[in-house]
Design a protein around this nucleic acid. Structure first.
Lengths: 103, 103
DNA sequence: AGGATAGGCAAGTGTTCACTTGCCTATCAA
DNA sequence: TTGATAGGCAAGTGAACACTTGCCTATCCT
């Protein structure tokens, strides 16, 4: 369950892909490839990026929509919230209440 | 930099250790070992747990303090906040303000 | 139809990683 | 001092993983 999420975040290339999708939503596979190459100096094959996107999609971090022969990718940050919810910090509760107990 | 943090979170055993430290702070290595064995049915050697704790400490997720021959481990959730800060959600800003814009 | 664009499937390879085994050091109690 | 407890260091092994290479399918344009 949570395994795929953390495994997906474990790779630095995948995190860079999330950065790119956060900056520009709805990119295609080739668009991500060229931006990884030009902006991040990542010499990586198209298939490698495709596999990374599959992992990110399995983790729920990326959602896709097809239009013809193009496949657009969108970032979904919702699964990230489960991380801070699992180990909540006393100062920052995951269910914030408008109440002050520790001044 | 962030690599050690995400690599540390990638392993399910390490996440279970964080769960245990979140429940009971200041546990020793042997205490963690026995709780992993009895409460989580994890048949794992003491050295394996020690290596996991070293990874978690390198990521800043676990802080240690020595007293004689005992070493106590404490959870530090501060590095986890960098995750949600890296990919902020429009609905949940990382700097929450007491204001309602989307009812 | 035919080429070009956008993407998918599958096997092979090298590296990283989790875990074990074996031995060693340091502190505490008798 | 001797034995027991708490932990550390280092090499070795097997499996998971990132990446490549090669080929195949589907859509769009002329």
């Amino acid at each position: 369950m949570a395994d795929v999420l953390f495994k997906a975040l474990a790779d630095p290339t995948r995190r860079t892909i999330l950065d790119e999708l956060a900056e520009k939503s709805g990119q295609t596979l080739f668009e991500i490839c060229s931006r990884l190459s030009t902006r991040h100096r990542l010499g990586i094959s198209r298939q490698a990026v495709s596999q990374h996107l599959a992992v990110l999609e399995a983790a729920g971090l990326v959602e896709t929509r097809r239009e013809g022969r193009c496949k657009f990718h969108d970032l979904n940050t919702a699964p990230l919230r489960r991380i801070t919810e699992r180990w909540p910090t006393p100062d920052t509760p995951d269910t914030p209440e408008p109440e002050k107990s520790t001044p």
